[in-house]
Design a protein around this nucleic acid. Structure first.
Length: 758
DNA sequence: GAGTTTGAAACT
DNA sequence: CAGTTTCAAACTC
């Protein structure tokens, strides 16, 4: 502990322990000093362990060591009994370790003190090196954590945490805890983790009822991130070392539950910056047996150990714009930063979980950008992972996660990618977007490796989300579909040097602002829809078939507006006067207004349904005419994304691409910001949803649109836009003017955008 | 899957 | 504001 208080306290304590008086007292007390305890491996030992922790003297260190030793011992010792007891001890040891960490300032002292106690136990079983190593590392890590203001000391250490957190403030607090612990292992769990507590009790009953434990823990874990939980499960199940003592496993489990990918040893290594390289090396060498430690030698790796890998993979998988919990993200961030505390950090996670289970849905944190959706699974935005990496990860695990609000956990089963896709799709389908929801669930296809393939695949499927393939734009320009849609790039994206990721949030937002400064409507939906038939839209537009129009109009020269090159066509809208296209043959409506399939339908139907139908018809016709990819709305029913809301309602089919999965984004900037921005505006990705006309009942119309802006008005506002001015500007200009007709930006209202958040 | 075409976006 | 370049999607083979 960096804190002087601790050090002060510790030193006296250590002195006290060292003092003959202390030894004398120990001899008198029914409880024997840790050393003796260690030998006995009995509950008493546990209680003792707690005591030393209080004192923070070398005993503490010994305990730490013992903990690790215990692990090994367990490994060596197949006996369940020992394991259970040891586990208890281990827990105690951990606590002790924590305490020691606080005291750790004098690492040398710890080591020294540590040696004797440890030697007794360990001598037989393990090489002292490990213990020393562990002891050293732990205290360091702990110290580190303590030093960091942010570090969640309490949460980090499941049972241990309590002691740790308390220790920060006062050592005394530790004492009671230790006492409790001494009585029962479970006591620790009680203090901090109810869920854990159960587990511990189970331990006693059976050494390794891991599955049960996992299942139990899973519940707890789910809230944090279902993925993690599963990952943990996998870890446990897969754990190559059955040997791992119960205690060890338990502690690990806790850590794992906490979502900390890094195992204890690993964590230590990460924290290594504090540790001296030489020491660490020695220790690792000392313990060749410990896979985790050895593997973890690489400080750069988040997770080395097998179990940790699974977890890490899972986390990596969750990449997308949305984060499960900020907490998680924060944690990860911390980890990345190196600030993350070791095992302690993990434990903290646990704590958070059980405490915050409620929180899970969503935290509006400062980091909000990451967390878009409440309850949405988080993609480790915090972790800056290259899309490439993610791809790699995919193979191992479902790289991308779907962030479904609420139930993310359910979806994150470590199943095959297809299953995930399906589950995701289902989830998305099941999940209706609440008007309040900022985020729109997006589903991604994990199975596909190449973006194109994915895209195509998804195209067929209404659900698919778009993925970009940017190579030079860094996904920070409107060229990038993801960026344009206001969403972060995700694993499936094949982009290179992508900056459109949560890690680069600042850059993304800055760029976004910059672009908006140039063109306020840059992120506005490209297609504007009118509730009523086109007449409003433009002079000619009135003739145009589609109720919706492209805000800027197209500029097609060669495609005759019959291919997706044409944004109007792509959006399923007819060309309007604003269009400068040549040889327009837009199936949805020619610029000259000649071909309007929809006109009739639209005129008749102002209602959503009617409009939709019209759209569908138009689309169908278009297909017929063009033989293009587009499918009529028929896809709609299939679309997983069908949202209760209008946003999603539009048939994606019109576009070859399914609407991209987007996170709900509030204002234009909002996509990235997500909830931060406060208003749960309906966000639509301009994206392809926009393009498709959506008839949105007024009710459904985003507040922004309703309240303020007639869409048209918004359009007009664009100062810069040459094109920006909507062709329908006439329409838009007067919201009230035309009977009830409303022009609505399908996509998220970008206008209020950027500013609100920051 | 690679290469071409296309038009929007960005730049000058 | 117009012209040019850049870019990535759409498309073709």
């Amino acid at each position: 502990m960096d804190t002087p208080e601790k050090t002060q306290i510790t030193s006296p304590l250590s002195k006290f322990e060292d003092s003959p008086v202390f030894s004398y007292i120990n001899s008198l007390s029914p409880i024997k000093p840790v050393k003796s305890i260690n030998i006995a491996h009995t509950f008493h030992s546990l209680s003792f362990a707690s005591l030393p922790s209080v004192f923070t003297s070398p005993h503490v260190n010994s305990h730490k060591e013992t903990r690790f030793l215990k692990r090994h011992n367990y490994a060596d010792l197949s006996k369940p009994e020992f394991s259970s007891e040891n586990g208890n001890e281990a827990c105690n040891d951990e606590r002790v370790a924590v305490d020691a960490a606080q005291l750790y300032d004098n690492s040398s002292e710890l080591q020294e003190s540590f040696d004797p106690g440890v030697s007794i136990r360990e001598a037989s079983v393990e090489p002292p090196g490990e213990h020393l190593k562990l002891a050293i590392e732990l205290p360091r890590t702990l110290n580190y954590d303590c030093g960091t203001p942010d570090s969640d000391q309490t949460p980090r250490c499941g049972t241990q945490t309590d002691t740790v957190s308390k220790s920060d403030g006062t050592i005394a607090s530790l004492v009671p805890f230790t006492d409790v612990a001494s009585h029962k292992d479970s006591s620790e769990g009680q203090v901090h983790l109810a869920g854990l507590y159960k587990i511990e009790s189970k331990k006693e009953a059976t050494e390794c009822d891991w599955e049960n434990f996992i299942s139990d823990s899973a519940d707890l874990l789910i809230f944090n991130s279902p993925i993690d939980a599963e990952g943990f499960k996998e870890l446990f199940q897969k754990s190559p070392n059955p040997v791992v003592g119960f205690c060890t496993s338990f502690s690990e489990v806790q850590k794992m539950q906490t979502v900390n990918p890094i195992g204890p040893g690993e964590q230590n290594e990460k924290e290594d910056p504090f540790t001296q390289p030489g020491e660490t090396i020695e220790l690792t060498q000392m313990d060749p047996t410990q896979d985790n430690l050895a593997a973890n030698k690489d400080p750069n790796k988040y997770i080395i150990s097998n179990p940790s890998k699974a977890v890490s993979n899972l986390h990596r998988g969750m990449r997308r714009r949305c984060l499960d919990f900020e907490m998680v993200g924060a944690r990860r961030k911390n980890i990345e930063d190196g600030s993350s505390s070791s095992s302690v950090g993990v434990q903290s996670d646990e704590k958070i979980t059980y405490k915050n289970t409620q929180l899970v849905p969503f935290k509006p944190s400062s980091d909000s950008s990451r967390c878009i959706l409440p309850g949405i699974g988080l993609h480790l935005n915090a972790l800056a992972i290259n899309s490439r990496d993610s791809k790699k990860i995919k193979h191992e695990t479902f790289s991308s996660s779907i962030t479904l609000p609420g139930s993310a956990a359910s979806f994150h089963s470590p199943t095959s990618g297809q299953e995930l896709d399906e589950s995701l799709a289902l989830a998305s389908m099941e999940r209706d977007m609440d008007p309040s929801d900022n985020v729109v669930p997006f589903v991604e296809d994990f199975s596909q490796t190449s973006p194109k393939k994915k895209r195509r695949r998804l195209e067929g499927e209404a659900e698919a989300c778009k993925r970009c393939n940017c190579k030079k734009s860094k996904c920070l320009k409107l060229y990038c579909e993801c960026f344009a849609a206001g969403v972060y790039c995700i694993e499936p994206c094949a982009c290179q040097d992508c900056f459109n990721k949560p890690i680069h949030e600042d850059t993304v937002l800055a760029t976004r602002k910059q672009i908006e400064s140039r063109n306020p409507l840059a992120f506005a939906p490209k297609v504007i829809r009118t509730s009523e038939p086109a007449p409003e839209i433009g002079d000619e537009s009135s003739k145009t078939p589609a109720s919706a129009r492209h805000k800027r109009g197209c500029n097609c020269k060669k495609s005759s507006c019959l291919k997706k090159y044409c944004e109007c066509y792509q959006g399923g809208v007819g060309c309007s006067l604003n269009c400068r296209c040549e040889g327009c043959k837009n199936a949805f409506g020619r610029k000259d207004g000649s071909a309007s399939v929809e006109m009739e339908d639209e005129q008749e139907d102002e209602t959503e349904a009617s409009e939709k139908n019209g759209v569908d018809k138009t689309l169908q016709k278009a297909e017929i005419q063009n033989n293009d990819e587009q499918h009529p709305n028929s896809a709609l029913p299939k679309t997983p994304l069908r949202f209760s809301r209008p946003l999603v309602q539009l048939p994606y089919s019109s576009k070859g691409k399914p609407p991209r999965c987007f996170l709900g984004v509030g204002s234009s900037s909002g996509l990235y910001t997500g909830q931060r921005y406060g208003k749960p505006n309906i966000l639509r990705p301009q994206w392809k949803f926009d393009k498709q006309f959506q008839n949105v009942p007024e009710d459904e119309i985003p507040e922004i649109l309703r309240e303020n802006h007639s869409p048209s008005s918004g359009i007009k506002t664009s100062p810069n836009s040459k094109r920006v001015s909507p062709p329908q500007s006439n329409l838009g200009s007067s919201p009230g003017r035309r009977s009830g007709r409303k022009l609505i930006l399908q996509s998220i209202p970008s206008f209020p955008s950027l500013t609100p958040q920051h």
